[in-house]
Every structure is written in C-alpha cells, then in structure tokens.
C-alpha cells in the first residue's frame, strides 16, 4: 500500500503526458469523423510526418558546434514547421485520396486511407531513413531540468508536453465555439448537405478540419519526440490505433470526448505499467475500449443515434 501511494503522483504525471499526446491525435480522428464519417487511418502517419519534420528542423539548427539559436526558439520552430507541414500534407491527402470518394461506398475511402498510410510510411523510409532517429536525450532540454514538488520530480519535457497540449486544446475550443469558421464546422458536422445548401463552403470547412486535425497530430509527434526521444517511420501505426481508440472511447465525433478518451487511455497505460506489468499495457488499452463500448455503446460523451422509421 505504501508503494502504491509513493508511486501515485509520478504515475499520474506519466499518464497525463502520454494521455495529452493521445488526446492530440484523437482530436484529429474525431473532427474528421464528425464531418465526413471517415475513419482516417492515415492520421497516425501524419503524426509520424510531424515528428520527422520536427527532426528536420532539429538537425538544421543543432550542428556539431551546438545550438545556433536558443533552444526554446528551436522547440517553437519545430512545432510550427511540424504543424504546418503535417497540415499541408493532410490537405493534399484529402484532396487526392478522399475527396474523389466522398460519395463512394463507405469502405472505399477506408481502403484508400490504408493506401495513403502505406505510401507515407514508405516514402519516409526511402527518402529519410529506415533506421530509428533521435532528437537526442540531452540536447533540447537538459536532463537535470527537473521540478521538485515534495517527493514528486517532474522533468521539464513532461510539463512542456502537458502544457502545450492544453494550450492547443483551449485554442481549438475557442476556435470552434466562438468563430465564424468554427460555427461552419459545427454546421457541417451536423448535416453536410444541409450546410452546403445554406451557403457554407463545405470544401473549405473540410480542408480546414483536416488541416487543424493534422496540425495537432504533428505537434503530438514533436512532443513525443521530445519526451521519448525515438522516431521511426512505423511509429504512426500504433499511435494512430491508440488515438483512434481514444476517440472512440470518448465518443467519436465529440471533441471533449476525444480529450477525455486520450487522457483516460494514457492514465490506464501508465497505471498498468507501474502496478501490473509494462507488457500488458496495450492489452489493457484495448480491453478498456471493449468494456467501455459495451457499457456505453456510443462512447463516454457521444450521443446515441436516433433511428427514424
């Protein structure tokens, strides 16, 4: 019992860190699903692209002589480039792989998304490297940048991840709730054709949704690189699956649900790793998914569909 309590705060922080990243990925899944009812299986690879774009910025400013500009600026620049790049690539993917299939049978864009996922992964493998890359464990944020709160020791990188994710989410909430485009987005997600007939430029809204979702995932990629160091061209697959799981657990299509689902998933994994065994963390994630969906078939914050007869 004593060990339980002594490990608790540290586990919470770990879980929230992981959960923030899952939430960032889940948001993109959920937003796209809300609007197009499309399971965008290439979303995990967009996250991977974000991590690699961040890496590109990283090696550009970190030469053997050390950092060319302040580290904080590098991190901001990495985030900006990753988010923009991921967003642009996602728009291109939407334009060429999904838009022609908007009125096709439901499963066709799904397969197309899988094809895109193959293309992105292998493009990176060929043009960058098949080997894992690293941001370097000590270079961006020194190893001893630790905040101490009593017994709790939090590494600055974790605070950065949680803080950045929270800022992005607040900004997104403001955007969707308060702006004209945000309102258009909500209208399109309620009824695409109806919104189009009311004069909403549906394509513009869809492009915007893809851009924002991908930018969040790209940011997630950079943040993961900062905390866990290692990048691979295949990293998008499992992360995408987890993000998808988080989105569904929260109620796919619901943005607060995606955040909640992401945080829950992160916490569940962290707690399993600490109190049970790290080998079971993936099993637990999916068992949790199955259990929650069976109890609440439309997710924690999703609305049940009404059937009209």
């Amino acid at each position: 019992m004593e060990t339980f309590f002594s490990l608790l705060p540290q586990t919470l922080v770990n879980g929230l860190t992981l959960g923030s990243v899952y939430a960032l990925i889940a948001l993109g899944y959920s937003m796209v699903y809300g609007i197009l009812k499309l399971l965008n299986f290439a979303h995990g690879d967009i996250y991977m692209i974000g991590a690699y774009l961040g890496y590109g910025v990283f090696i550009m400013f970190f030469t053997e002589q050390g950092a060319l500009i302040p580290t904080a600026l590098i991190i901001v620049l990495m985030l900006v480039v990753a988010m923009t790049g991921a967003g642009v690539i996602s728009i291109v993917v939407e334009r060429f792989a999904y838009r022609p299939l908007r009125y096709a049978p439901r499963i066709a864009p799904l397969i197309s998304a899988l094809g895109v996922s193959f293309i992105l992964q292998n493009m990176v493998q060929i043009t960058v490297s098949p080997r894992p890359l690293s941001y370097g464990s000590d270079t961006l944020i020194p190893r001893n940048a630790i905040f101490e709160l009593g017994d709790l020791r939090i590494h600055a990188s974790r605070l950065l991840v949680i803080g950045a994710a929270m800022i992005f989410m607040l900004f997104l909430t403001y955007f969707v709730r308060q702006t004209r485009l945000g309102r258009a987005m909500r209208a399109v997600s309620t009824d695409l054709d109806g919104a189009a007939m009311m004069g909403v430029d549906v394509n513009q809204v869809i492009v915007l949704t893809f851009f924002i979702g991908a930018a969040l995932a790209g940011a997630g990629g950079v943040l993961v690189g900062i905390v866990f160091f290692s990048l691979r061209h295949t990293m998008g697959f499992l992360a995408g699956l987890k993000g998808f799981t988080a989105a569904v657990v929260g109620g796919i299509g619901s943005m607060p649900g995606a955040v909640l689902g992401g945080l829950l998933l992160g916490l569940a994994e962290a707690f399993t790793s600490v109190y049970l065994s790290a080998t079971y963390k993936d099993v637990v994630a999916f068992v949790m998914l199955i259990f929650i969906l069976l109890v609440k078939p439309s997710g924690l914050m999703g609305k049940p569909l009404l059937q009209k007869v």
Binding site: F96, A97, P100, L101, A104, P105, A108, P109, I111, S112, L114, G115, V116, S117, F118, I119, Q121, N122, M123, Q125, I126, P130
Partner: peptide, 21 residues
C-alpha cells in the same frame, strides 16, 4: 522492399478512385 509496398499503396488509392466498388 519499401518500393513494393509504396506501389501497393498507390495501387489501392488509384483503384479505389477509379472503381470504388
């Protein structure tokens, strides 16, 4: 090894667009 999966991926996307059914 990577190229063949790249081609398979491209085939999937193109075929779905040309013949979604």
């Amino acid at each position: 090894s990577a190229t063949r999966i790249l081609i398979v991926g491209a085939t999937l996307v193109v075929l779905m667009i040309v013949r979604p059914h």
